[in-house]
């Protein structure tokens, strides 16, 4: 697969690790359509769709004079699509679409291009809270409709339903302490 040609054709597209493509939100549908229909790629089989959560992080850097500066780097949510080509027998190519940050989570849906993304984008919406614009039926899929959290996010707080264990240790001990109060 000649990714270099694609990078030239769509100037907004980047490749961070040389293997996967990061698509800007506004170009995502256009590039995806090209990947599916271009005879060189023909990536017609969208095998895997998933979300990944990158939380906000604070990066500390030391300046030359020894003073420390900490910079907050905003996190984002990412959807990764793994594409294969049945006709050209090639793949996988991973494409990534990122949200602006972790509160503004609107990205274009690629379900109109690959039907396979339908249920999997619903799953990413349910578990990560990524809003896919243009998805035909964006509802919760694994959790119930009234559920409000997004459990696969890294900062998800579980409900406190600790169950007695005779020998709690590590994280479970912490949980037990929290559940029963400091004892």
């Amino acid at each position: 697969m000649n990714i270099a040609r694609l990078l030239k054709q769509f100037p907004g597209v980047r490749s961070e690790d040389g293997a996967s493509l990061v698509l800007p939100r506004e170009l995502a549908l256009q590039v995806a359509e090209c990947l599916k229909n271009d005879p060189e790629f023909k990536l017609d089989y969208c095998s895997n769709v998933t979300g990944v959560d990158y939380p906000d992080r604070i990066e500390k850097s030391k300046a030359a004079d020894g003073s420390e500066t900490s910079k907050k780097i905003p996190g984002f949510l990412e959807t990764v699509y793994h594409l294969y080509s049945i006709e050209n027998k090639q793949g996988p190519l991973a494409i990534r679409v990122r949200t602006a940050d972790r509160t503004n989570t609107r990205v274009p849906s690629l379900t109109p291009i690959w039907r396979a993304a339908e249920l999997q984008e619903r799953e990413a919406y349910d578990l990560f809270g990524i809003h896919y614009i243009g998805h035909p039926d964006l509802r919760r899929i694994l959790m119930w409709d009234d559920f409000e959290d997004h459990p696969m996010r890294k900062d998800y707080q579980e409900p406190d339903d600790y169950h007695y264990e005779p020998t709690p240790h590590d994280e479970v001990l912490e949980k037990a302490r929290k559940h029963y109060g400091a004892a």
Binding site: W144, D146, F147, E148, D149, P159, D161, H163, Y164, P166, A176, Y180, A183
Partner: peptide
């Protein structure tokens, strides 16, 4: 089915949680 958990999390008439022994 509630917003974060099932409500109530257990039925106190049926289930009596073990007291913690440490």
């Amino acid at each position: 089915l509630g917003a974060h958990d099932i409500v109530p999390p257990f039925n106190p008439e049926v289930w009596h949680p073990e007291p913690v022994r440490r």
